[in-house]
Amino acid sequence: MMSKTARIEVQDQFGRWQRFQTVSATDTSIKLALQRALKTQLASKSRKARAVDDKTGALIDILQG
């Protein structure tokens, strides 16, 4: 059985979501990855990062900072 994974994406300056990384779908790993994603150059304009289920594409969490 495969463990669930979450895809972390960052919104670029044009409003498109770009893949940042894939993490295990635990609350802690998702929160840490979202915080790291917001610190990237790619997120410097939009200040938005989201976590989506890697298999279904369902939104898990979104962070704005």
Rank of each mutant, 00 (worst) to 15 (best):
F14E: 01
G65N: 09
Q18K: 11
K45V: 08
T26V: 08
Q11M: 11
I30H: 09
S46I: 12
A58R: 05
R7W: 15
R7Q: 13
S29P: 04
Q21A: 11
R47I: 02
A58I: 12
I8H: 01
S46N: 06
A37H: 00
F14W: 12
R47D: 01
R7M: 14
T40G: 03
S24C: 07
T22I: 11
S44R: 13
G15C: 04
M1H: 08
R16P: 01
I62Y: 08
M2K: 12
I62F: 13
Q11N: 00
I8E: 02
M2H: 08
K48I: 03
V10M: 02
T22W: 13
W17E: 03
S29D: 10
S3L: 15
S24V: 15
G65L: 13
T22G: 00
K48N: 05
T26Q: 10
I62E: 10
V10Y: 04
S46G: 06
T26R: 03
A51Q: 01
F20I: 02
S29Y: 06
D61W: 14
L32I: 05
T22S: 13
S46L: 08
S3K: 14
T26P: 03
A43R: 03
Q11G: 06
D54C: 12
K31V: 07
Q13C: 13
R16A: 11
R36F: 08
K48P: 05
L63R: 04
G65A: 13
S24W: 10
T5V: 14
L59F: 15
Q11D: 11
K45H: 05
A25D: 09
A33P: 06
M2Q: 05
R47Y: 11
G15A: 06
A25I: 05
M2T: 14
T5A: 07
K31H: 11
L38N: 08
A49R: 03
S24Y: 07
A51P: 04
S29I: 02
Q41F: 12
A37R: 00
K48L: 07
A33F: 09
A51W: 03
D12P: 02
K39I: 11
D61T: 15
R50M: 04
L32C: 09
E9M: 13
F20Q: 05
G57Y: 04
S44G: 05
A6F: 14
K31A: 03
F14Y: 05
A25C: 02
R7F: 15
M2P: 04
F20M: 05
T22D: 10
A25K: 03
K39R: 14
Q41S: 14
V23A: 02
S24K: 07
E9A: 07
K4I: 04
K39G: 13
K45T: 10
T5N: 09
R47S: 07
G15H: 08
